[in-house]
Amino acid sequence: MVSVHFQNCIMFHQMAGLSIQSPLTTISVLVFHLVLIPFSGGQSQLIGSSQPIVATIGDDIILPCHLKPAEDVAAKTLEWTRSDLDPRFVYVWRAHQELLDLKNPSYLGRTSFFTDELKHGNISLKLSRVKPADQGRYKCFIPEKEEESFIELVVGK
C-alpha cells in the first residue's frame, strides 16, 4: 500500500511539473508519507469473523468483534444491531453502561460484554440461551469511529 501511495505521489509531483531529482528528496517524500499515513483517519478497523458463527439451540456463544489496533473503547458508544429487527438494537453501550431501554425485548437478559476487555478494544458480544430467532446478520458498530463489522449467526438444532 505504501509503495503504491509513494508511486502515486511521485506521479503527482511529475504531473505538476515538479521533479524528484535527488535521492534525498525521494527519501524525504517517502518519510513524509510514512509518518503521515499512520495518523490519517480510518486506520483502525473492527475485526469480526469472516466465517459464520454456528450455534445449537440453547448454546451460549460469542460473536467476536475487536478494534485493531487495540484501543480503550469503554467510554465510547458501542452498538450491536440486526437490521431485520424492530427495534434493531441487540446491545447498546454508552458512557460505561448498557442502555436497556433501546434493546430489542427478545435479547433482554441474554446479551453481555466482557467489560474488563473493553479497555483492549474487545467488544465481542456474549449471547446466552440461543434461540432459532437469533439467526441472522449482526452488525458490530462504533458510531464515533464510523467502524463496523458484520457477523453471521447460523442456528442449528
Score class of each variant (00 low, 15 high):
residue 53 I to Q: 10
residue 53 I to V: 15
residue 51 Q to K: 06
residue 36 L to Q: 07
residue 30 L to F: 12
residue 31 V to T: 11
residue 54 V to L: 09
residue 69 P to A: 08
residue 18 L to Q: 14
residue 56 T to M: 12
residue 73 V to R: 06
residue 78 L to E: 02
residue 69 P to H: 06
residue 21 Q to M: 03
residue 71 E to K: 15
residue 40 S to D: 00
residue 28 S to R: 10
residue 41 G to P: 15
residue 63 L to S: 14
residue 70 A to N: 12
residue 58 G to A: 06
residue 25 T to G: 03
residue 32 F to N: 09
residue 26 T to I: 00
residue 44 S to V: 03
residue 57 I to Q: 09
residue 65 C to H: 09
residue 34 L to R: 06
residue 43 Q to V: 11
residue 88 R to S: 10
residue 46 L to V: 08
residue 41 G to E: 08
residue 59 D to C: 04
residue 86 D to W: 00
residue 59 D to P: 06
residue 26 T to L: 09
residue 58 G to L: 04
residue 39 F to G: 06
residue 83 S to M: 02
residue 34 L to C: 11
residue 63 L to E: 04
residue 57 I to M: 05
residue 79 E to C: 12
residue 23 P to K: 04
residue 43 Q to S: 15
residue 46 L to F: 03
residue 22 S to G: 00
residue 84 D to Y: 03
residue 39 F to K: 14
residue 20 I to T: 12
residue 24 L to R: 09
residue 59 D to W: 02
residue 32 F to Q: 08
residue 77 T to R: 15
residue 82 R to W: 00
residue 89 F to R: 08
residue 52 P to Q: 07
residue 80 W to E: 05
residue 40 S to L: 04
residue 80 W to G: 07
residue 20 I to F: 02
residue 81 T to H: 10
residue 23 P to Q: 06
residue 78 L to R: 03
residue 27 I to H: 06
residue 22 S to T: 10
residue 55 A to F: 01
residue 29 V to A: 11
residue 87 P to M: 03
residue 32 F to H: 08
residue 51 Q to F: 11
residue 63 L to P: 13
residue 19 S to E: 11
residue 89 F to I: 07
residue 52 P to D: 04
residue 18 L to E: 08
residue 49 S to R: 10
residue 83 S to C: 01
residue 62 I to P: 03
residue 72 D to R: 14
residue 45 Q to L: 13
residue 43 Q to P: 00
residue 58 G to K: 11
residue 70 A to K: 11
residue 84 D to R: 11
residue 84 D to F: 05
residue 52 P to G: 10
residue 78 L to C: 03
residue 51 Q to N: 12
residue 68 K to Y: 09
residue 67 L to N: 06
residue 62 I to Q: 13
residue 77 T to S: 14
residue 73 V to P: 04
residue 83 S to V: 00
residue 68 K to A: 12
residue 35 V to H: 02
residue 26 T to C: 08
residue 65 C to V: 04
residue 45 Q to F: 02
residue 83 S to K: 14
residue 31 V to I: 12
residue 29 V to F: 01
residue 86 D to E: 08
residue 33 H to F: 01
residue 37 I to T: 15
residue 44 S to A: 15
residue 70 A to Y: 00
residue 42 G to I: 10
residue 62 I to Y: 02
residue 39 F to L: 14
residue 88 R to V: 02
residue 78 L to F: 04
residue 71 E to S: 15
residue 60 D to V: 14
residue 54 V to C: 12
residue 19 S to D: 04
residue 90 V to E: 08
residue 42 G to F: 14
residue 42 G to W: 13
residue 36 L to H: 07
residue 73 V to Y: 03
residue 83 S to Y: 00
residue 28 S to M: 09
residue 58 G to T: 10
residue 89 F to K: 08
residue 18 L to M: 08
residue 72 D to M: 13
residue 84 D to G: 13
residue 61 I to A: 13
residue 64 P to I: 01
residue 48 G to M: 02
residue 27 I to W: 03
residue 51 Q to T: 09
residue 80 W to D: 05
residue 19 S to M: 07
residue 64 P to D: 09
residue 60 D to M: 06
residue 39 F to T: 14
residue 78 L to S: 02
residue 19 S to T: 12
residue 24 L to H: 01
residue 20 I to D: 06
residue 82 R to K: 15
residue 43 Q to K: 11
residue 28 S to N: 12
residue 32 F to E: 04
residue 62 I to K: 13
residue 35 V to W: 00
residue 68 K to Q: 13
residue 53 I to W: 00
